[in-house]
């Protein structure tokens, strides 16, 4: 009962990550963190873009060449998926904060919907970019 006791009871600990069967709410939670970290880097890339624009045409041209290269496009596509997934998952968390969609089945569906939105919206934006001739 008290934390002043010198002998701690051998209480059960929560299972470690490795002994859990993978399920979609767990994956979505990890993906929310991972995309958050990716967007942290993405915001620093955005800051670099703003700096290059402020520096002048040469620096801005260099920045555009870097993000327009094949590795640059791969990173940008990953950031597009991250933006849309993190957005959808953020809305999902705001809904969960109100106590809604917390039953296992509806929580799974909300996770599936946010994952699908992240992928679909990113692909749609890149198709639009291709149609605009922006690639």
């Amino acid at each position: 009962m008290t934390d002043s006791s010198p002998v701690r009871a051998a209480r059960p600990l929560s299972p470690h990550l490795q002994v859990w069967r993978w399920h979609i709410t767990m994956f979505s939670s990890i993906a929310h963190r991972a995309t958050g970290i990716a967007l942290y880097v993405g915001a620093l890339i955005l800051a670099a873009g703003a700096a290059s624009l402020a520096s002048g045409p040469e620096a801005y041209g260099g920045f555009r060449a870097a993000i327009g290269s094949i590795p640059g496009k791969v990173v940008l596509f990953g950031l597009t998926v991250s933006v849309f997934y993190h957005l959808a998952a953020g809305v999902r968390h705001l809904v969960w904060d109100t106590g809604r969609l917390m039953q296992p089945r509806s929580a799974d569906m909300a996770c599936a919907a946010s994952l699908a939105f992240g992928g679909a919206a990113a692909v749609a934006v890149w198709i639009i970019a291709a149609l605009m001739g922006a690639l």
């Binding site: 800051a47 703003a50 700096a51 402020a54 002048g56």
Partner: peptide, 15 residues
């Protein structure tokens, strides 16, 4: 820094 860069371009235009 990024906000400063945006404001510089917004107020001063092309470098």
């Amino acid at each position: 820094f990024a906000v400063f860069c945006v404001l510089k371009v917004a107020f001063m235009g092309a470098a």
